[in-house]
Amino acid sequence: MRRFSWFNATSLTLGFAFLYLPMIILVVYSFNDSRLVTVWAGFSTKWYGELVRNEEFLDAAWVTVRVAFFSSCLATVLGTMAAYVLVRAGRFRGRTLFSGMIYAPLVMPEVITGLSLLLLFIGIGLDRGVFTVVLAHTTFAMCYVSVVVSSRLTTFDTALEEAALDLGASQFDSFRLVTLPIIAPAVISGWLLAFTLSLDDLVIASFTTGPGATTLPIKVFSAVRLGVSPEINALSTIMIGIVTVGVIIASLISKRAAVAQARDEQAAPRTT
């Protein structure tokens, strides 16, 4: 009996081709010498050079990184706090409603999120720019962070926090010195998730951005409308690289965290 039949091999190849062929083509053509995107004219890295000299793209990249960094940090703080309260507060009236409300933005169409944020910013007279994009990204990324962190917190042994309190630590100290170091892998995964979400968001950013705050996805999108250039291919290749590295790091962290958790749980004789 062959475990790996021709049928299996074919479906696997087709599936992966479906997923990755477009990206491979993009990466390959980013090294194309020709200005025409669809005609291969030999290997070259000149478009990467062009990219580095393109002020507009560099500005947009800088905006994007700043937005992603600040929004993911804010989202991590807020999302962790929300998760902590929802998991720890025990039963209070309307708890189900609250946790439902945390998850709702996950399934909310981005257009609606973006539009409502735009209306809010206009309503309170906030000038649109980098700051508003940061706020907007924080809003939706924090839900993702809170989901990741609360799933870790539900398996966290509360006796550890009680032990910290018992030994004289304040509530804040017990969180800072005991809870946070232990759930840190989940928090870091949440941060990475928030960072990548912000990095590639187009819809919400275009609703909430203003002059001088063009993010890379917006820039790419508007550039593509004028015609695809090999420069865009080069840029996209770099972004694929960054996201790939991020995903690998995130999965390594969560894998190691899972191993450590299993080990610690084994270390505890039993939980009451």
Binding site: D157, A163, S170, V178, A260, A268
Partner: peptide, 20 residues
């Protein structure tokens, strides 16, 4: 009086040692 202000210490049944 909150637990962190009591001159009382508890040894937990699960030990509750800080794993990190």
């Amino acid at each position: 009086v909150p637990p962190n202000r009591r001159p009382v210490n508890m040894m937990f049944q699960s030990y509750a040692l800080f794993p990190h």
